[in-house]
């Protein structure tokens, strides 16, 4: 009996090699697996096997059954698939059904990147109004009345006492008036300058301001924080330098330059942000004791930063909202 099983298996393996399509598979099935087929007959003959041989013979038959059926099924589904695909041709190269998703304006994307870096350094994010009082925009920030420092920021006035903010620094004043130190925050937003619209300047742009007030804030820490920022934003190998400058609300004041080599042009130092230690007058104006607390502040233009990063040389394209531009970012 065992011999017969083995021979059957051998013949089965031999014959299956000749099966090439579904009709020869059917002949093959009839020969082995149909009701009168060789394998079926062997299975049926188990009942005639002497009782003592049944465990061994039974197992052998069972294995033969499993083996032959699984080989058959495998081949069958393979042949069926071949047949199907040759009948129903699927052109997988047709363009897919595209679903367009939008994007944030490049200014927002740049701001997000800046925000993420500073949030990682423990900064909060505060916002404030765009239509501001002269007091918050200038006076509280130590801009004397009738001082040439006011010419640094050409202002759109609404009335004598109200204006479109020329920088995000009034948010500093609002924040320091409403909360006690330690304060560590960045303040992004839209600002306005009464400058003729050209490739280099627009009547409005976006800024992000930073402020840190505590008992042990130093110029060395301001430098360290900004260096960490420019490395993360522009790349670890960015070259930078600090230059003394003048802002009424900081003392000492500085500007930070990075070395910039636009494609195909000569490299040069480019100013990317202004910064400094919060002027004691500003702290006094908001009721913080300047002898006890020290602060630093910094601010940068987002458009300029974005334009530098993406190699855009006309600011106006940022506000045209041309779809061919928007979809690039």
């Amino acid at each position: 009996m065992l011999d017969k099983i083995n021979t059957t298996k051998k013949n089965f393996d031999e014959d299956i090699k000749n099966v090439v399509d579904l009709s020869s598979l059917e002949d093959f099935r009839i020969k082995y697996l149909s009701r009168k087929g060789i394998v079926t007959q062997i299975i049926d003959s188990l009942k005639d096997v002497p009782k003592e041989d049944k465990p061994i013979i039974g197992r052998a038959i069972n294995e033969l059954k499993k083996y032959t059926f699984s080989i058959y099924e495998e081949l069958k589904s393979k042949l069926e698939n071949e047949k199907k695909s040759s009948e129903n041709f699927i052109d997988l190269t047709l363009p897919g059904r595209v679903k367009e998703i939008g994007s944030k304006h490049i200014i927002t994307q740049t701001l997000d990147e800046i925000k993420n870096i500073f949030k990682g350094l423990g900064f909060s994010v505060y916002e404030g109004p765009e239509l501001e009082s002269d007091y918050n925009n200038f006076e509280a920030l130590n801009f004397p009345d009738d001082h040439p420092a006011r010419d640094m920021q050409d202002t759109f006035f609404i009335t004598e006492k109200f204006l479109l903010r020329t920088h995000t620094s009034p948010v500093q004043i609002r924040l320091m008036q409403s909360k006690k130190p330690p304060l560590r925050a960045i303040m992004p937003g839209k600002v306005f300058r009464n400058e003729a619209v050209s490739a280099k300047s627009f009547c409005l742009f976006h800024q992000v301001e930073g402020l840190y007030v505590d008992t042990d804030v130093t110029f060395a820490e301001l430098k360290g924080t900004l260096v960490a920022f420019v490395k993360q934003f522009f790349g670890q190998d960015v070259q930078y330098r600090f230059r003394p400058s003048f802002f009424p609300f900081t003392e000492p004041s500085a500007e930070m330059d990075i070395w910039w080599e636009p494609k195909g042009k000569e490299g040069r130092w480019m100013e990317i942000l202004g910064c400094g230690m919060v002027d004691p007058n500003v702290l006094s104006n908001v009721g913080i004791d300047p002898e006890k607390f020290v602060g630093y502040a910094f601010g940068m233009g987002i458009e300029r930063t974005a334009m530098r990063k993406y190699g855009i040389d006309d600011i106006r394209i940022l506000f045209d909202n041309d779809k061919r531009f928007l979809t690039q970012f």
Binding site: I101, H105, E130, L204, N321, K323
Partner: peptide, 14 residues
């Protein structure tokens, strides 16, 4: 809004 397919624009406030 981005996920719904909208592009962000920024326009002149004046």
């Amino acid at each position: 809004l981005n996920a719904l397919g909208f592009y962000e624009i920024i326009t002149n406030s004046m």
